[in-house]
């Protein structure tokens, strides 16, 4: 957001998910958003064929976090050649679960009056960070101690020019909550938590050193396979 705008949950820019040449003229670009706990798939559909398109419907394959359409895909009028329409699909997280590779991969089938088309896209795992992901401080300390060191992953966020308070505010807008901050030998250490829609907690330590644009992120989680995706979300949130 610009000056005076409230900062919202990080939404990636739209990318092309289905090029027209692979879908008999239907082009779809899209992204994912989370606003006040509502997860949505936001798509732009363009008809690059010479005939009208109608009767759109969408289905997801099973996926790691049970994302599924919470209603039908609403494309209310037929799509004429060269016409573009925006479609917003609310999602639930109680659909069938199957671990995907990569973890945040989503396989989608979309049909219209011409054919059925398939594509894959990836959502940022921060889409699944819930609004009540601030862990109790005592529970954080106990959990941090309890999770074995083997479950800790460390990453570097390079070239970040925010101070630790600005970083903390930016992350909080995406439901990454700072529980404690300490300054040791000129380094700010932020202890943070987030909770995924399926109840998995992630604990983080963010080290920010004055004058050093490289941050260190250490993540501790009982399901360490999510750490790589969480780190990618840290990068995306902090750099956008």
């Amino acid at each position: 957001g610009g000056v005076g705008m409230p900062m919202g949950v990080y939404t990636p820019p739209k990318t092309v998910w289905l090029p027209a040449m692979k879908a008999k003229g239907l082009e779809i670009s899209g992204t994912f958003s989370r606003r006040a706990g509502v997860i949505q798939m936001e798509m732009t559909l363009t008809n690059k064929a010479m005939s009208v398109m109608a009767d759109f419907a969408i289905q997801f394959n099973k996926n790691s976090f049970g994302l599924s359409p919470a209603g039908p895909l609403q494309v209310l009028t037929p799509l004429s050649p060269n016409q573009t329409v925006e479609a917003t699909l609310p999602l639930s997280n109680v659909g069938p679960v199957m671990k995907m590779e990569p973890l945040t991969n989503l396989q989608v089938a979309i049909k219209n009056n011409i054919d059925i088309f398939y594509f894959s896209c990836q959502y940022p795992i921060s889409l699944l960070f819930v609004e009540d992901g601030k862990m109790d401080r005592q529970v954080f300390l106990a959990t941090w101690k309890d999770i074995p060191n083997d479950n800790e992953s460390q990453f570097q966020v390079k070239d970040c020019h925010l101070n630790s308070d600005a970083a903390s505010n930016k992350l909080q807008a995406s439901n990454v909550f700072t529980i404690a901050k300490r300054t040791v030998d000129g380094q700010d250490m932020l202890y943070q938590s987030m909770k995924l829609t399926n109840g998995i907690w992630v604990l983080a330590e963010l080290k920010v050193q004055a004058g050093n644009p490289n941050y260190m992120v250490s993540l501790k989680c009982r399901a360490p396979e999510v750490s790589q995706c969480v780190f990618q979300s840290y990068e995306a949130i902090l750099k956008n």
Binding site: R137, L141, W144, A180, V184, M189
Partner: peptide, 20 residues
Amino acid sequence: EMEDGLDEAFSRLAESRTNP
């Protein structure tokens, strides 16, 4: 008193992570 204990515990955690 418990809050003081937690503040102290976070300080110890941060210290231990900076000077292991």
